[in-house]
Design a protein around this nucleic acid. Structure first.
Length: 294
DNA sequence: TTTAACGTCAAC
DNA sequence: GTTGACGTTAAA
């Protein structure tokens, strides 16, 4: 509900109102050393063949052609910044995450039969994992490689309907997921997952919002709103900044919107800090706990 | 000290 | 459930 309001908000006019004081960098220092496989520049520089989810998941030949520099087309293909800033970008990230949470999109290890279907996809997935593990050392991933990643697809997902399809790794940053150190983590826990938070002195008590400490949580720096660099200057928070002391509604971190001690928060931590195929198990447990209700 | 913005609470 | 106001925290 509130999401619909958010995504319907102004996306492009706000750039005219950009404030020089708005930080371009994530506030948490540790984010600077995040081993996220892609930097923001990747999304900015990478051409995007399509805006719709379906197109990203499995671009049609026409959409793939659209990725090529065709000068005869009057309308340019949307760029990554467009996607981040546009309602479509929010839709995309939210849709992917909601699908995952709802169990409609499950991470399942590929079988040999499925490997045939996604033969070319398993390799980039491995490579991406290796790159994430190597923390970009050597900088061997050239533009061609990344291009191949995004179009050749990296990871197999089994949607609820049963059909296997190649899933573009570009969706994972969008959906708030990243692969690092051989296991899945979620930006729902911040850029570095629960481990990072603990390492930075965030006690479980502070995470749960309980206890005596009233420490302020910080922006994850990775979600769509966090990546947004400009205030809309039109929402109530922007208009009422002096008294409201609130960040622009369209820049409000998705993670901070969640109640720290709300239902499912801890199970989300355990369920999303995944080790391989525990992903579906975590989701099942989460559903069993009723964490997805409401 | 100033500024940004999170947390909380009350009003609606 | 949403919104606005204020106290407070944290960083510059």
């Amino acid at each position: 509900m509130s999401t619909a309001v958010d995504i319907a908000g102004p996306s492009s006019p706000d750039q005219a109102h950009s404030s020089a004081k708005i930080p371009n960098e994530p506030l948490r220092p540790s984010l600077k050393r995040s081993n996220h496989p892609y930097g923001l520049s990747h999304y900015i520089s990478s051409p995007s063949p399509a805006v719709d989810v379906k197109g990203l998941i499995q671009p049609s030949p026409a959409q793939q052609r659209a990725a090529q520099p065709v000068h005869t087309k009057p309308r340019r293909a949307p760029s990554w910044p467009d996607m981040w800033e546009s309602p479509s970008g929010l839709h995309l990230a939210h849709a992917a995450e909601l699908l995952m949470r709802a169990g409609l999109l499950a991470l399942t290890p590929a079988t040999t039969e499925q490997a045939g279907l996604g033969a070319q996809s398993s390799q980039p997935a491995k490579r991406e994992a290796a790159e994430a593990k190597g923390d970009g050392e050597g900088g061997g991933s050239g533009p061609e490689e990344e291009e191949e990643d995004s179009s050749g697809c990296g990871t197999d997902f089994q949607p609820f309907l049963g059909a296997w399809f190649p899933f573009s790794p570009a969706l994972f940053p969008l959906a708030g997921f990243q692969m690092g150190g051989g296991h899945w983590r979620s930006a729902a826990m911040g850029a570095e997952g629960i481990e990072g938070l603990v390492a930075e002195g965030y006690s479980p008590g502070s995470l749960g919002g309980g206890g005596g400490g009233r420490r302020k949580r910080k922006r994850c720096g990775e979600c769509v709103p966090c990546r947004r660099q400009t205030n809309c200057e039109q929402c109530s928070s922007c208009r009422n900044r002096k008294r409201g002391h609130q960040i622009c509604k369209y820049r409000k971190c998705e993670e901070l919107k969640r109640k720290p001690g709300g239902p499912g928060f801890e199970s989300r931590v355990s369920g999303f800090d995944l080790r391989g195929s525990d992903f579906t198990l975590g989701l099942a447990q989460e559903r069993g706990n009723g964490a997805l209700d409401g």
